[in-house]
Design a protein around this nucleic acid. Structure first.
Lengths: 151, 151
DNA sequence: ATTACATGTAATTATAATAGTTACAAGTTG
DNA sequence: CAACTTGTAACTATTATAATTACATGTAAT
């Protein structure tokens, strides 16, 4: 099991729009950076738009960030692209036997634990912003450039 | 996306073996409590066995816990049933465009963040034991019994 | 040793999610 | 109107899950 790459791609899209600021970020341009089909980008872009993270207009090339970079956390993106439902990171088997003491109580016993674990993961995502990722990438670029010049 | 119910079923199995202590917990008996096919139970049981959590012998009915209840955490079960690979809770799109500053750095930028989030979730699972779940279930049973008598 | 029953496991199927693709309607701009 | 873009529906290939059938292998009691 793995959480859909829609999440990683959503982050990629937002970061790219920022780094490409001043130029037009069309779905085709973004798709070439992500290395996928433009339709995949438009689909995810639609979700980011519904969540109020970007602005895009039909017929008009290019997407823009709808909020300040520091105001978009990875958790916001995660919710926007709908990769994991609330309280449903862990699948619980349905219809355990109610005639058994374990069967009739197991769900209520483990669901709160699963919920706590899911929330811990989501909290970690909430503490990182798109701005953090942009800064990290620009720093890596800078380091690479310095390396290329000195070696 | 959802983490396979193998995990929840694995927990169910271990709890049931404990609650049914003294009696024989065959795959058929466990399957009737989980409400699934005995083969599903045997497959998961095999994983629990490989992880050293239970003892089962071919041909001999019944499984037993191989460790003290308080020494088995939900994280141990999670690892045993192999529902999420290390560092792979989140899928990262492959082959982003190396000709783009974002494309060539995005993976290294987000993988550590994803890793932290996954570890936070796993840590939460590590802090709960099978014994905790067993106690919780027995308490729920007790409360239900009391309710049934007084109402 | 034979019978009865359990575990271990391969093979098959149905179902669902993902990611990619084609096709095209609808919007925008020059 | 022409060129280009976004928005979406529809279809496909791939993969994972869970359930099921079938059967080989192992154990124990008579």
């Amino acid at each position: 099991m793995s959480i859909s790459s829609r999440f990683a791609v959503g982050i990629h899209i937002l970061v790219l729009i920022e780094v490409n600021k001043g130029n037009v970020s069309s779905s085709e341009f973004i798709a070439s950076s992500v290395n996928t089909n433009p339709v995949v980008i438009r689909r995810i872009m639609g979700m980011l738009k519904n969540a109020g993270l970007v602005t895009v207009r039909p017929g008009v090339a290019g997407a823009e960030l709808a909020r300040d970079l520091t105001g978009i956390s990875l958790f916001d993106v995660y919710k926007a692209v709908d990769v994991v439902q609330e309280r449903e990171l862990f699948n619980v088997h349905e219809n355990p036997n109610p005639a058994c003491a374990v069967g009739r109580n197991i769900q209520e016993a483990i669901m709160p634990v699963f919920s706590v674990a899911q929330l811990a993961m989501e909290k970690a995502l909430g503490s990182v912003t798109i701005n953090d990722v942009v800064k990290d990438i620009l720093e890596k670029e800078k380091a690479d450039n310095a390396n290329r010049l000195t070696t």
